[in-house]
Amino acid sequence: MVSKKVTLTNAQGFHMRPAMNFVQAITKYPCKISVKTPDKEVDGKSVMNLIAACIKCGTEVEIICDGEQENEALDTAIALIESGFGE
């Protein structure tokens, strides 16, 4: 299992477009991926759960990957969040 913390910097946080981009980018990795905030942990491959979690700009989240290709998945996830989801 690998994990890394990162702060959401795009203005809208995990809303529709960012969540879609995120899931699209990581869903190809077979490992389990979750997004953990100070008060909850959600399935990183589920757009619905990411949106429902309502994670705002400025929140520090921990990305946790567990399983096959976990390192690649983590790198992709972190790079995407750091880039502000290419917004």
Binding site: M16, R17, M20, V23, Q24, D43, S46, V47, M48
Partner: peptide, 13 residues
Amino acid sequence: ILGHIMMIQDPYI
């Protein structure tokens, strides 16, 4: 609209 396609394929849903 693409978002809707993604939502219906959402693993959780």
